[in-house]
């Protein structure tokens, strides 16, 4: 029998990581929502974000959290660059061509990382690596709690940006009615580049905040990408609240799955995904395809 304490521990652990999933999914959803492009390179940018934070820590002793101030603008620029050079050319192409182009970008960057950093898994040990808090018998590890809180804070910042700034309004306008947005004088090319840049920065920062408790290697992005795909389909492609709730839900189910033996822990998530496709293909909070 599994006692409630173990269950509570699993739930807590799952929810904490779920916050990070939500942040990853938000970036993917921003790119999909505004540009209607499914970005296969999303996980790769997360991996690169992890490496950026790793080198900042290892070479200059900069902790991943303050390091966000460097990583975010760097990846905003990288995202804008990738959008202008490659992605902007395929906005009107069929969906599968978009998938393949972003896959090509991902192959290039992932293997660039492999060539530069080799396949060895790397990790950092900040001071707080082993700190933990006990809440009602449930132990919360400090790096994971920090990642969760940081992810929620960034999600909040993102929602504020989207709701209350001119840039956010322009993004939502371009997402909903491209021609209309052009007519009222919004330069959608710029908006698309920024949306891709912000989505990239979000996922890179997600990489920064998991680094204190996650090993980085060139292929680490693949797992997160798959989870992000499942999250956005579950929550509704293009729905931001859906991404947030979907991320937490995936984390929760994965946490409960950890009670199962071996790496069957992933199975409940997949079953949830298939069920949601069958029962509600538009996602929990999505309107329609």
């Amino acid at each position: 029998m599994v006692d409630w304490q173990t269950v509570a521990q699993s739930v807590a652990g799952g929810l904490l990581l779920g916050g990070v999933y939500a942040l990853v999914a938000l970036g993917l959803n921003l790119i999909f929502g505004v540009m209607k492009v499914i970005n296969f390179a999303h996980g790769t940018f997360m991996m690169l974000g992890m490496y950026a934070s790793y080198w900042l820590f290892t070479l200059y002793g900069i902790d991943p959290y303050p390091g966000i101030l460097l990583v975010a603008p760097l990846f905003l620029l990288l995202g804008v660059l990738v959008e202008r050079v490659v992605v902007s050319r395929i906005l009107d192409a069929p969906e599968h061509d978009q998938l393949l182009v972003t896959l090509g970008v991902s192959l290039f960057l992932q293997n660039l990382a492999l060539a530069l950093f080799k396949a060895d898994p790397r990790s950092i040990r900040p001071l707080y690596a082993d700190w933990s808090f006990s809440v009602g018998g449930v132990v919360l590890s400090a790096p994971r709690l920090g990642a969760f809180l940081a992810a929620l804070a960034l999600a909040g910042l993102f929602f504020w940006l989207l709701r209350s700034t001119d840039l956010g309004k322009a993004m939502r306008a371009a997402a909903e009615e491209r021609e209309g947005a052009i007519l009222v004088g919004i330069d959608v090319r710029w908006i698309y580049a920024l949306a891709f840049g912000i989505g990239t920065a979000l996922v890179a920062v997600a990489g920064s905040i998991v680094l204190p408790f996650f090993t980085v290697s060139p292929s680490v992005g693949e797992t997160f990408l798959l989870t992000a795909f499942i999250t956005v389909v579950l929550g509704g492609l293009g729905s931001f609240p859906g991404a947030l709730i979907g991320g937490l839900l995936i984390g929760l189910v994965e946490g409960l799955g950890a009670l199962l033996p071996g790496s069957l822990r992933q199975l409940p998530v997949f079953i949830l995904f298939v069920l949601s496709l069958l029962v509600r293909p538009q996602g929990l909070l999505g309107s329609r395809q």
């Binding site: 061509d97 393949l100 182009v101 090509g104 192959l107 290039f108 990382a113 060539a115």
Partner: peptide, 22 residues
């Protein structure tokens, strides 16, 4: 001897093919 270099080239070619001969 250059792990990854072949797949980098592959990625670039994939992008170019989709862009220029869809």
């Amino acid at each position: 001897g250059f792990a990854g270099a072949d797949l980098m080239v592959f990625g670039v070619i994939l992008v170019l093919v989709i862009l220029f001969m869809p």
